[in-house]
C-alpha cells in the first residue's frame, strides 16, 4: 500500500464530511467526501480505498449495503461505520458483515482518528495518525 492513506467518507449530513476531511488531512490522509451513497459507490468501483467511513442511515442505500459492496469489491479495505442510531443488533450485524469498527455519533474527530490509526496498522501502514492529533 501507499504511505498516504486513501480514505472515503460517506455521510448524508454535510457537516460530517466538512469536519472530518480537514481533521484527517491534517494527519496526512487523502480524503474524498460524499453525501450521496450512489456517487460514493460509483467512486468505490473506480478506486480502491484503504479505509471507507460510512454512515448507516441514508436514503436509498444504507451503510450496511455500502459495507457489503466494499467487501465484494475490495476485501482489504477497512470499513468503519458511524451512526447516530447505534443499537446492539445493528452493531453485531455490521461486525458480522465485516466492518472494522462501529462508532456511535456524536464522536470527536480524535476518536475517529484513533480508530483510523488502528485500521491503518491492520493494513500494515506505518503512518502515525495520532502524532498529529489535537
Amino acid at each position: 500500500m501507499t504511505q498516504v492513506l486513501q480514505i472515503l467518507v460517506l455521510d448524508d449530513e454535510p457537516i460530517v464530511g466538512k469536519r472530518l476531511k480537514p481533521a484527517l488531512e491534517k494527519s496526512g490522509c487523502l480524503v474524498e467526501t460524499f453525501q450521496d451513497p450512489r456517487q460514493a459507490l460509483a467512486r468505490i468501483e473506480e478506486k480502491e480505498f484503504d479505509i471507507v467511513v460510512t454512515d448507516i442511515k441514508m436514503d436509498d442505500i444504507d451503510g450496511i449495503q455500502v459495507l457489503e459492496q466494499v467487501a465484494k469489491k475490495s476485501p482489504r479495505t477497512k470499513v468503519i461505520i458511524i451512526t447516530g442510531y447505534a443499537m446492539m443488533s445493528l452493531a453485531r450485524e455490521a461486525m458480522d458483515k465485516g466492518a472494522f469498527d462501529f462508532i456511535a455519533k456524536p464522536f470527536k474527530p480524535d476518536d475517529l482518528r484513533a480508530v483510523i490509526a488502528k485500521a491503518a496498522q491492520a493494513l500494515g501502514s506505518s503512518v502515525d495518525l495520532m502524532a498529529t492529533s489535537a
Binding site: 452493531a91 453485531r92 450485524e93 461486525m95 458480522d96 465485516g98 469498527d101 462501529f102 462508532i103 456511535a104
Partner: peptide, 10 residues
C-alpha cells in the same frame, strides 16, 4: 464469531 467482537461502540 465476528458478531461478538468488541468495537468502539460496545
Amino acid at each position: 464469531s465476528r458478531k461478538f467482537q468488541p468495537m468502539t461502540f460496545s
